[in-house]
Amino acid sequence: MIKTEAVRKLGVWTVVDEADRVQWEMLAGEGVGPLRFGMSHDEAAASVADVLSPVSTRGGYGSPAASSEFSLVGTSVAPAVTTYYEAGSLACVAVNALRGPQVTLDGLRLVGRVPSILEDAFTEYTSTNGHDLRYSQHADPGSETLGVVLRAQRAGDVVLSRPVLVAPIWAERCCDVTEGCIPTEEWRDRVW
Rank of each mutant, 00 (worst) to 15 (best):
G33Q: 07
P34H: 08
L35I: 04
L35W: 02
M39S: 09
S40N: 01
S40Y: 01
E43N: 02
A44V: 05
A45F: 10
A45I: 13
A45Y: 09
S47K: 00
S47P: 00
S47W: 08
S47H: 03
S47D: 02
A49P: 02
D50H: 07
S53H: 15
S53C: 14
P54K: 14
P54G: 14
V55Y: 14
V55R: 15
R58Y: 15
R58A: 15
G59Q: 12
Y61A: 06
Y61D: 11
Y61E: 09
Y61C: 06
G62R: 14
G62F: 15
G62W: 15
S63H: 07
P64H: 05
A66T: 03
S68C: 10
S68M: 09
E69N: 10
E69T: 12
E69H: 08
F70H: 11
L72P: 05
T75N: 08
S76I: 11
S76H: 12
S76C: 09
V77E: 13
V77M: 10
A80N: 01
A80P: 03
V81P: 01
T82L: 07
T83Y: 03
Y84D: 02
Y85N: 03
E86P: 01
E86C: 00
A87W: 02
A87K: 06
A87R: 05
S89Y: 00
A91K: 04
A91S: 09
C92K: 01
V93N: 05
A94T: 11
V95Q: 08
N96K: 07
A97F: 05
R99N: 04
R99M: 03
P101I: 03
P101F: 02
P101N: 00
V103P: 00
V103Y: 06
T104N: 06
L105Q: 00
G107H: 13
R109H: 13
R109K: 14
V111W: 01
G112T: 03
S116I: 05
L118Q: 06
A121I: 11
T123V: 14
T123K: 13
E124I: 12
Y125M: 08
Y125Q: 07
Y125G: 03
N129T: 07
H131G: 06
D132A: 10
D132W: 06
